[in-house]
Design a protein around this nucleic acid. Structure first.
Lengths: 254, 254
DNA sequence: AGACTATGTTTCATATTGTAAAATGGTGTT
DNA sequence: AACACCATTTTACAATATGAAACATAGTCT
């Protein structure tokens, strides 16, 4: 039951939009109805409405649906309106250029990080844009920074589920994660050493708003073959300094 | 009255999402209600629902709203699911790199072009991303290509409104526009010579799907100081060839 | 060719949810 | 203190949303 009368329909429609994923970008009516827990007639009507608004496109040959051009437009407007993104972009570009590695800006949503911006290393021409993708927070450098600065209540709510283990290096024990996050808080940055993806390493630093709350994190990362422990030690102060400058742009002053 | 019962609410919520623009990224309840033609109680409830879904964020200090992180995520998924985008990206990157200018991929929505992808000239580090923005079709090279390949009915529906005139070069007479589009059809490409923006020139070419229908257009463009008529003549076959390769990727064969 | 299955679309009957005016709350200005 | 304006909540009341059943379409199997 939604908090307010008059919103159940809206939330059902949003559930349909969220049913599309990177791994399943095209779905039929039955699959969408199931994913959004709706009757197929209800799903059909809502999909037709969303299609008329351009948020969804229908493939008339296969009777299946995809997210449509108005969803791209909406995402673009959302990105250009995002103050974190706007404040961070110049620093991320400078960081990627100076280090020669990929830099990202991420926020926490639920137990995952959401990539708001990404500036690719020049090694990576042609990569698929990651903006808008999400990753298990406990396995990323940015996620560990964000988790480290949560209140106890917020953190416990996230830990209620089982932690994913994408690689052998992923920390899944709550106790071990707590210890790791204590360390992150103390040292002011986090490293993810092949915890999300074999062969990938990154260092992340906190971005604070004008009230001093950690609202985002930036990272710089790349392949472990290139990012040796010595190289990570060089990149860490650069990431911290870039994050500090972004924090100042957002109005933070110690 | 919506086409189907059960969809009026959904369309109202979408109207709220679409009320946010690049020029007005942050709006209060009253402004949003007016823009979406809703009662403020109805708007308030729907905004709260959209906020709970992350599509909208509320600034608690100013009681105003912006598009939220889930809208960014939705746009990213929509982009990565878009077959035109996926098929075109490598060609756009090659085109931008070889020409040193900015290349775009656009589709027609209503009387406007919507930018699905953009690869910037290396002159343009730090520019705001244009993905998801829209422009009057009759003033852009891609728009003229797309308009040139519409049916008479589709074209007349678009001409029912008054044509914008962003610069002195913009064609606004329907008769002149028809002549220009006949020319575009014949020569197989379009040039926009400071018709959208003073100082900006671009050449556009059609992208066809497996059935031969023009479903998108690509362009390559830059400042008129650099893009002399001689330079445009050099770029034109490059744009046409890139568009032809994209069309082949989409399954088109003459 | 006919039967069957699965999915999408439309019709019909029935509540359930959506709506907006009025009232209240909060903040800033005079 | 009074007033203006915007946001939020309450209240009363239809109007819209919903889903089962029926129908349509396409593909598969015998």
């Amino acid at each position: 039951m939604p908090a307010y009368p008059g919103t159940q329909s809206v939330l059902r429609a949003v559930a349909l939009l969220k049913a599309f994923t990177d791994s399943q970008p095209e779905l039929g009516l039955k699959e969408l109805a199931r994913a959004a827990k709706l009757n197929k007639t209800t799903a059909f009507r809502m999909l037709t409405a969303l299609e008329s608004a351009g948020l969804i496109s229908k493939n008339d040959e296969t009777d299946s649906y995809r997210l449509g051009p108005e969803a791209i437009a909406l995402g673009g407007r959302a990105l250009r309106a995002n103050r974190l993104y706007l404040a961070s972009r110049p620093e991320l570009e400078a960081l990627a250029q100076k280090t020669g590695e990929t830099a990202t800006l991420e926020v926490l949503t639920g137990g995952e990080t959401l990539i708001l911006d990404e500036v690719l290393s020049h090694y990576f021409v042609g990569a698929t844009p990651s903006i808008g993708t999400r990753w298990p927070a406990h396995t990323t450098s940015t996620g560990k920074v964000l988790l480290a600065h949560l209140s106890t209540e917020e953190f416990d709510a996230i830990l209620s589920g089982r932690l994913a283990k994408p690689t052998a290096n992923s920390v899944t024990s709550p106790a071990a994660l707590r210890r790791e996050l204590n360390r992150v808080r103390e040292q002011g940055y986090a490293v993810a050493d092949e915890e999300l993806e074999v062969g990938h390493v990154a260092v992340g630093a906190p971005v604070r708003n004008h009230e001093g709350r950690v609202v985002a994190a930036i990272s710089v990362g790349g392949p472990s073959a290139r990012l040796t422990p010595e190289r990570i030690a060089e990149l860490t102060p650069r990431a911290i300094q870039a994050a500090d400058r972004i924090s100042k742009t957002l109005g933070y002053s110690k």
